[in-house]
Design a protein around this nucleic acid. Structure first.
Lengths: 226, 226
DNA sequence: TTACCATTCAATTAATTAATTGAATAGTTT
DNA sequence: AAACTATTCAATTAATTAATTGAATGGTAA
């Protein structure tokens, strides 16, 4: 029956239709992973494909969806399209979603715990408790993300040792102080792998669970080389 | 080709699969509307169906999806199932999504502006600027939501005049002070309708855009009659 | 016990979405 | 000009999702 809907019903349908654009954009695991990667800095389609294991065409399709939802933007330089998060509010929203998922979905905690326990990991530590010691030179804060991500933004006082260069540094690090390692955040495995390698060489190393995204979310200062 | 995936890829796929449960839950305009209603207090399936214009079976289907994503919970009392938001973090997340949508989607602002302009509305006002005047008895803060929502939680110093009872009150209100009206928030039309009716009778009435959800999100105190 | 009520379940249909594959496009290099 | 490169587009296929309809379930009232 084609009954006329009241203005308020039409208004609500339109508004909720718009809000659902955000929901649809993040209903795909693939697009959430892409967004998480972009939270660390701009990336090309090719780089996103390699990092996620998806085909280039598939990544491009997903990026079009994210563009349509206004969560990302891009600039072309030559053959390359460099994508980035549309603005900081997108990153904040991703952190909020992570917090909700951790809070509500037992599976999230379980999957993380099971994965990290394979590395015989102690619990991660929190940056707040360390900031004084880092400033005093008491310990080393190590960023093991790709260097371009470090250059884009990093935690204060962090040194950059990309995971694929760690091997070369294993004999050159100061042995007399603890090393705290971080990477892209809770969905990234670089830090846990780096801690394992460092401990194998006798260093006192620990994993920091937070990355720059969580840090920005809490309005803490970030350093950049740009 | 059935190539073995590294442990880290499996881990990421599992974690992002979990995060996508949240995204999928809110990818439907219908489910977002249901969540927004539940942010105002517990409701039965029948009430949700009436408020949203959906069939009871359809509401129930959507609620099962939200249950599966752990965003809602319910208790049965006799024939009735009373649904509510799983906890406060769900409400916070909904507010964050709203903020993001407003920030990113020009259509959201546009749809709201177009709708409210039909009511010849002035811009809404903010509670922060009013709190002193309300406490001094200078103006009246009026909650026009259904009374059970008011009882569940309301802004400090608010009086309850459900929209469908406003007609009866139109001759009894103090004429010498301004009236500030609020309802469920930015997706609700009760406040704008109430302001229109009040102005027609000569009252100085204004619409408050925020509701209890935004207020709680900013960690401001809420009153309850429960 | 029977009738009524609110809700959930199941089957169906239509619409939407995700990944793949190959073509098309636009910029760069030779 | 031709070849190469990164990316986007379009068509296809399979899977998933949303709404409807009617049956089933469990609690209450008569």
């Amino acid at each position: 029956m084609n009954q006329k809907q009241p203005t308020s019903r039409i208004f609500k349908n339109e508004i909720y239709g718009q809000l659902a654009r955000i929901g649809k954009a993040i209903s795909s695991p693939r697009r959430i992973e892409i967004l998480d990667l972009l939270a660390q800095g701009q990336k090309s389609v090719e780089v996103l494909a390699r990092e996620t294991g998806m085909s280039i065409a598939n990544v491009s399709q997903h990026l079009q969806t994210l563009l349509d939802a206004r969560l990302v933007r891009y600039e072309k330089r030559g053959n390359y399209s460099y994508y980035r998060l549309a603005d900081e509010s997108v990153s904040d929203f991703l952190v909020a979603m992570n917090l909700l998922a951790e809070n509500r979905l037992a599976d999230v905690k379980h999957i993380r715990q099971e994965f990290y326990s394979k590395y015989d990991e102690t619990d991660p530590i929190e940056l707040d408790t360390l900031i004084d010691r880092i400033e005093n030179g008491d310990l080393t804060l190590m960023d093991v993300r790709p260097r371009d991500e470090y250059e884009a933004a990093h935690l204060p006082h962090a040194v950059s040792v990309p995971i694929d260069e760690l091997e070369k540094h294993l004999s050159h690090l100061p042995k007399d102080q603890e090393i705290v390692v971080y990477c892209r955040g809770k969905q990234c495995v670089y830090a846990v792998q780096a801690v394992r390698q460092l401990r194998k060489k006798g260093y006192q190393a620990y994993r920091l669970e937070e990355g720059i995204q969580e840090w920005k979310y809490r309005n803490r200062p970030i350093e950049t080389n740009q």
